[in-house]
Design a protein around this nucleic acid. Structure first.
Length: 260
DNA sequence: CCATTAAACACCC
DNA sequence: GGGTGTTTAATGG
């Protein structure tokens, strides 16, 4: 039985341990890790609160230590579009840092979340000096691009049940969201925002998927039972979000980081 | 017609 | 109070 959405714990890794074990930190020397750790701080963001807002100058690269956040935009008329969710272990916000422009979307905590904030200077310093870090950022951007291709495809040629199946499956990208839990702590309303579907359609689609044994509906959450089944759901088109489980590791390569 | 959705509603956690 | 499931009225192909 999926847990309700209120009783999750906020533990997760300590900030310094999360940085030490991050896949983008593979070629950093201990003193360089120490600088990243000392400059990066942590905040706990309450459910529904903003981690960053549209229009903010990009001050930090953001890591989800524990919890779940979403990238979304609200139109002046109040229409909400959610682009993606980022779970524990995921990092977000590099786009505004790389452009050095104001944020184009809100980053909102869907559940109370512990967020690591890496200052822009540290992000740029890592980008200047670390090959592994660059590989990580490239890979992450590429993964996101792949997700959006997949999204456009299912948006254009698939029915809503397939869209919702693939949207949910896309959240479980092992590179972008290594810590995504099978118990999705998302209301059907949120899933609707995420998939571009109405609440009714979302509800209906989730029940279809439950009848097929692919998910289990709980109260305020959905448990993913058969991830590959979700990825493969549909009319035979191989979804772009499908990938081998072992994929997505940043290769350790030679390359140093000069101290600033 | 048929499909879809926003809004409103009554439960129930 | 918020999430879910259902009905209803409006909309558009």
């Amino acid at each position: 039985m999926p847990r309700s959405r209120d009783d999750h714990d906020l533990s997760g890794p300590m900030l310094d341990e999360a940085i030490r074990r991050a896949p983008w930190a593979g070629d950093l020397r201990p003193e360089q890790i120490a600088r990243v750790v000392s400059e990066t701080h942590e905040r706990t963001i309450a459910s529904g609160s903003f981690v960053a807002r549209q229009g903010d100058p990009p001050g930090h690269w953001l890591g989800v230590l524990n919890g779940l956040v979403k990238l979304s935009r609200a139109s002046p008329a109040g229409r909400v579009v959610t682009f993606t969710g980022i779970a524990s272990g995921g990092w977000i916000g590099e786009s505004a840092l790389l452009r050095n422009e104001r944020r184009r979307a809100d980053i909102v905590a869907v559940r109370t979340s512990r967020i690591a904030l890496m200052p822009r200077e540290i992000f740029l310093w890592l980008l200047e000096g670390s090959i592994v870090f660059n590989r990580f950022v490239l890979h992450q951007l590429n993964e996101r691009l792949g997700q959006y291709f997949s999204l456009v495809e299912s948006d254009r040629v698939q029915d809503s049940v397939t869209r919702i199946a693939h949207c949910i499956a896309a959240l479980f990208d092992p590179f972008l969201n290594p810590g995504m839990e099978a118990d999705l702590q998302l209301s059907q309303q949120e899933i609707g925002f995420l998939c571009g579907a109405s609440r009714q359609r979302t509800n209906e689609a989730l029940h279809s998927l439950e009848d097929l044994g692919l998910v289990k509906i709980g109260y305020g959450c959905v448990r993913v039972v058969d991830l590959d089944g979700l990825r493969g759901y549909g009319d035979g088109v191989t979804p772009l979000c499908a990938r081998p489980a072992a994929g997505g590791r940043t290769q350790p390569v030679q390359g140093g980081l000069r101290d600033a």
